[in-house]
């Protein structure tokens, strides 16, 4: 129990997928203009993360490993992730059109979200069990959510700030992200106890 909590804490805060591992920067910069869409995006990503990590675990352990096809991991994972995202999009379009309208442009981004592939590959590399893999993915999703929503709030305020033209737009976004990463350094070591 305690161990699982540490995995969660570790992936969500200490080794935050965006701010410490620098994975998934594309949606982090792209879908952080409004708190609401950031929330939708991060929830969708968390969902996809958990789903794909479970699927890729099955793929890895039931297909690739027994057949000795480890070298096809990246290709196979991409295939599964892309199909899953597509599927999620279809379902979302049908059942929650409002959310789809907000995320419509960005959902396909999850396909190429390196956080999703990265987490799946990391799990495979470490040979983690099924439950830890899913937990790890879930923690990463939570970390992604925290980072994205915090950042969206900051950017909503940035939009109202009188940022000098030289910094306005992406530059100040990256500076803010850097400072946010600086703040997250404070969580270092939390899971060592």
């Amino acid at each position: 129990m305690n161990e699982w909590l540490m995995v969660l804490l570790g992936t969500a805060l200490v080794n935050n997928v965006v701010l410490v591992k620098f994975l998934g920067l594309c949606p982090f910069m792209g879908v952080s203009r409004k708190i609401d869409s950031a929330l939708g995006m991060s929830l969708a990503t968390t969902f996809v993360l958990v789903l794909t990590s479970a699927l890729t675990w099955v793929l890895e352990h039931e297909l690739l490993a027994p057949l000795g096809l480890g070298y096809l991991r990246i290709l196979g994972f991409i295939l599964v992730i892309a199909a899953t995202v597509q599927f999620v999009e279809l379902v979302m379009k049908k059942n929650t059109p409002e959310l789809h309208q907000v995320l419509g442009l960005y959902l396909p981004l999850i396909t190429t979200n390196c956080a999703v592939l990265g987490i799946a590959l990391l799990n495979a590399q470490e040979g983690a069990g099924f439950v830890p893999s899913v937990l790890y993915a879930f923690g990463s999703g939570v970390g992604f959510t925290i980072a994205l929503i915090l950042f969206a709030g900051l950017r909503e305020r940035l939009a109202l700030a009188r940022v000098p033209a030289a910094f306005s737009g992406a530059p100040i976004g990256f500076i803010t992200a850097g400072l946010l990463a600086l703040a997250f350094m404070g969580f270092a070591g939390l899971t060592n106890h």
């Binding site: 793929l59 297909l63 690739l64 057949l67 096809l69 096809l72 290709l75 196979g76 295939l79 599964v80 199909a83 597509q86 599927f87 279809l90 379902v91 379009k93 049908k94 059942n95």
Partner: peptide, 20 residues
């Protein structure tokens, strides 16, 4: 295996596209 994977995923997606 990859072809099988691709075909089955494609099949699922195709069906989903119709259903949803």
């Amino acid at each position: 295996s990859l072809s099988l994977l691709g075909v089955s995923l494609g099949l699922v997606l195709g069906l989903a596209a119709r259903k949803f």
